[in-house]
């Protein structure tokens, strides 16, 4: 390969093929972003202007003001942020510890533990939703934050991910520390964890995105509008502001923007981790 740019030293067929390729990719990009751009644009339109296209100068924040004034959006945002924060912090601690043990310490029952983790890896929440609901109800946790946090901290996929991360790191440093009399926990915290920070970050991003976007769990476990997460709130806007498409689109933007920003910033980290995790989803 000697060419430096996309079109350097091209012959006509090669140019045509480049044009065809970029046209196809651009079409794909248009399809991928179109609906989101539609939501963004529409969210700034006055309800009376929709569905016409209007000049940029006519765009306004009216829908955002309206939705904040007429629905507990701020509360939903706070709920979502709090629940996401809780799951991420809990998940990072619990799954990192478990992944470490499975990768590093030999103890009676390790193989069994690992096989159990593998076995439940693919079990979808949909299939165990009914007993989960019963547990939450028995604990008196319906409409509570803990119902949305506690059950989703330990995660077989994230344990698996962290085990792989620790296995990819050389064990020598830690052995030296252990020989010098450091305890297991200190060697874990001071040596192993700093070497697997990208695994820890991946885990945080996965748990954060799953929780932020989760819908089935909060819609089942919360009936009090004050306890809704943003996804459930947005879904309820559909019936509340049935005719106000522009207001609903403001809700879509509010829900999506934090995740989209995080994605664009961390996309190098996120894309590959989801490619493995999406298998589980």
């Amino acid at each position: 390969m000697t060419r430096s740019g996309p079109l350097a030293g091209t012959t006509f067929p090669r140019l045509a093929s480049s044009v065809a390729k970029y046209s196809l990719l651009s079409l794909g990009a248009l399809i991928a972003t179109g609906p989101l751009l539609f939501a963004l644009y529409t969210s700034f339109e006055l309800p009376a202007d929709y569905p016409r296209l209007v000049a940029l100068s006519r765009l306004t924040l009216w829908n955002y003001r309206y939705v904040f004034d007429n629905a507990p959006v701020l509360r939903w945002y706070a709920n979502t942020a709090f629940v996401t924060f809780g799951v991420v912090v809990g998940a990072v601690v619990v799954n990192t510890l478990a992944g470490y043990v499975l990768a590093r310490i030999r103890y009676p029952g390790r193989t069994v533990t690992f096989l159990v983790v593998l076995a439940v890896l693919m079990v979808p929440l949909q299939a165990i939703l009914i007993p989960l609901y019963l547990l939450v109800a028995q604990f008196g946790w319906l409409n509570s934050y803990q119902a949305l946090i506690v059950p989703f901290i330990a995660n077989p996929f994230l344990i698996f991910l962290m085990r792989q991360a620790f296995q990819a790191v050389p064990v020598d440093l830690e052995e030296a520390a252990l020989i010098d009399g450091a305890g297991r926990f200190r060697s874990f915290l001071k040596i192993a964890v700093p070497l697997t920070m990208s695994g820890v970050a991946t885990q945080a991003v996965l748990a954060g995105t799953w929780t932020w976007n989760s819908f089935m769990i909060p819609v089942t476990f919360t009936t009090d509008p004050n306890q809704y997460m943003m996804t459930v709130g947005l879904n309820s806007l559909q019936s509340q502001f049935y005719t106000l498409t522009t207001v609903q689109m403001a809700g879509v933007v509010l829900l999506s923007v934090p995740v989209v920003i995080m994605f664009v910033v961390f996309q190098r980290l996120i894309v590959p981790s989801f490619a493995t995790a999406g298998i589980r989803g």
Partner: peptide
Amino acid sequence: TFFRTTFFLPYMTSTVAVTTVFMKL
């Protein structure tokens, strides 16, 4: 990288958000 990121964007967006938008489309 640009196209990969762009194609991936819908997967990062909430199912509720995407469905709500498509219902309007």
